[in-house]
Design a protein around this nucleic acid. Structure first.
Lengths: 355, 355
DNA sequence: GACATAATTGAAAGCGCTTTCTGCGAAAAG
DNA sequence: CTTTTCGCAGAAAGCGCTTTCAATTATGTC
């Protein structure tokens, strides 16, 4: 009767799956032998193995991974903590992480949008027992917070997160170097007044990029006065910041936006004001998101190989899980280099080069 | 001694976290009371609760979610199966799923790139015991496969996957309607020879979009001969297909690409051939990925509200998990409507309207 | 053929947690 | 003052699995 019911509403009822016990009964062996036969651990007579395999097949047995990892203390899953799931930066990042994870047979448990420390804490706790390690991009959270929230329970690799004391392994972008190189490039293009639209406040990336801007300006253009407008990495903030810059008595000749989306918003504002990019104002970004190629004029930007960054972080974590001693407080810096396209004006003579 | 070691290499050693047993000992109560106090289930005297909370705080106790869900049979996690993690379509989709999941306090376990049935099977099995339900976008897998791989073990919602017998709940795009409307729009623009670059073979979306193309053409332009070139949803395939179409004796006046990336590749090829889009050849896409707005000319396309699609699917699944009886074999179709931008030429008179 | 040795197998002990179920003392009812 | 009820705490039974450990059987040696 019950069986009939089950069969007739297969995709409604949450009837419990068949367990190892059922397989054992079906194969007339012990649970232990089923486990051994299925996992290939320990010695099992050929005949028994076949009987187990057949029984498992017949009953359509699927082991409960949750229970499995409770015993083995291995989940083959990596937790990924991101601040939000928005914008191509994160997409590229997770794509890189995913591809590296896949090639190692690891799953990804993602958790996003932790607006405050409480939510982050919650998310971190929810990971315990479900993952073997953590990959965290938490701009507004410091190592101390992590330390006291999960005191070494889980191996963790930080992605461009503030960790002054170098307690955790981290891989980060060479924000300073990239920004420096970009400003230098703008100077080389001949621009003498270069403004900066900064990123979200209280963010390591924001600070380092701004630092690169100031440093390069001081070095390359000692007489120029830095001009900085606050943004927040969004297209909209770029739009508004550009409007603000255009209202200035002395309009800057070039704008270095803290990221590509900001630069894109910036370009819209400039074009709407009836001006040309790069002829009237040059605009450059940071990140090299896929869209940077498609936008017109194609965006000159700092390529950080976002997907590689994610992949490197995962590799780092994965090997740290295998051999905990390798996961020391190493900080890996991935390089960032200028990609020249059309929005900076460097290619003005060689038009049509496209892409 | 051991403790000293632990402290000094906090992020190396994988010392087991503190368990509910430790908290119980520390608070001088039973494990049962700790559980009750922490979860707020069952009655606990105020004094005991406070003692437990204090002990948990002192020991920095984090419950093991894996063990928890083994008992409760609830993981508060949704499994997401995607064919690959590439392109903005998937990004938008997962963004929608993620935002819906977050607002319901659910986690996401993602699994991608299942190239063959074996891998898919593997991935499906790895989900059992880790998730409460499944969201699957598996173009080359049919309901029968799913049925026999996990026979109703998990509630599942299909995303534009072939499910002829309507065994599973599914939410899909109105591919046919969108394609039909787009071709109709092109006819309304005055084009009389309209080609189609199809998508990846053996894909439901591909087939339905092509079907929409044929139907609209037959209806709106009975005398026109359909021209179809095989693509595979990539930018490159669009590029190549366009070259092929341009070599035709009678060059088509408009091209309906099966998706936006194909259309973008298509535009590149046309421009490289020294022709103008839309003046010489109009190009339109399908999906409305974020980049469609930024590409020049801005892409006329069929908006499928990808993120909404993902969110709807998650809602559907979540409510199906709560009340299994609601998760019948309902098929939800999300509408797809034409978004007119510049690449179709409809706006030629009103230039500069942008974005 | 009797013994030591090796190969298999099953019973049982958990992994860390929740949840009955039982028992206790206190409050309410008689 | 006794009996009934009730609120609360702890013991213990698992969830589905792996993994000792001891028991069993098969194999090899003298």
């Amino acid at each position: 009767m019950t069986d009939l019911l089950r069969t007739s509403r297969v995709c409604y009822a949450r009837f419990m799956g068949v367990t190892i016990k059922d397989v054992a009964r079906e194969a007339r062996v012990s649970m232990a032998s089923v486990s051994r036969a299925l996992n290939g651990t320990g010695a099992v007579r050929k005949e028994i193995r076949e009987r187990v395999l057949a029984a498992a097949e017949r009953l359509n047995y699927v082991p409960n991974s949750g229970a499995q990892s409770l015993m083995t203390r291995r989940t083959r899953t990596i937790g990924v903590l991101l601040p939000r799931f928005h914008g191509e930066f994160f997409f590229e990042l997770i794509r890189g992480i995913d591809s590296a994870a896949r090639s190692r047979g690891l799953h990804l448990l993602v958790s996003t949008s932790h607006n405050d420390a409480g939510e982050t804490r919650q998310a971190l706790r929810a990971m315990v027992g479900r993952v073997d390690g953590l990959l965290a991009l938490l701009p507004h959270v410091d190592a101390q917070f992590l330390h006291q929230t999960l005191r070494g329970t889980l191996p963790i690799v930080l992605l461009s997160t503030a960790d002054i004391e170098h307690v955790y392994a981290s891989v980060r972008i060479d924000n300073f170097g990239g920004a420096y190189a970009m400003v230098k490039h703008l100077v080389a293009c001949g621009y003498r007044s270069i403004a900066h639209i900064s990123g979200q406040p209280d963010n390591v990336d924001t600070e380092e990029r701004a630092r690169g801007y100031f440093a390069a300006l001081a070095q390359e253009l000692p007489d120029a006065k830095p001009i900085v407008v606050q943004g927040d990495f969004t297209e909209e903030s770029g739009y508004k910041a550009a409007q603000e810059l255009l209202r200035l008595r002395e309009r800057p000749r070039a704008i270095f936006a803290a990221n590509d989306m900001t630069a894109i918003g910036c370009i819209s504002a400039i074009m709407e004001a009836g001006l040309s990019v790069p002829d009237d104002v040059a605009v450059v970004g940071f990140d090299d998101i896929p869209t940077a190629r498609f936008v017109r004029p194609a965006l000159t930007t700092v390529s950080v190989h976002i997907a590689d960054l994610g992949a490197r972080a995962l590799e780092c974590l994965a090997s740290g899980i295998e051999k905990p001693e390798t996961l020391s407080s190493i900080t890996e810096i991935v390089p960032a280099d200028v990609v020249v396209r059309d929005s900076c004006g460097a290619r003005r003579q060689s038009r049509g080069a496209g892409v």
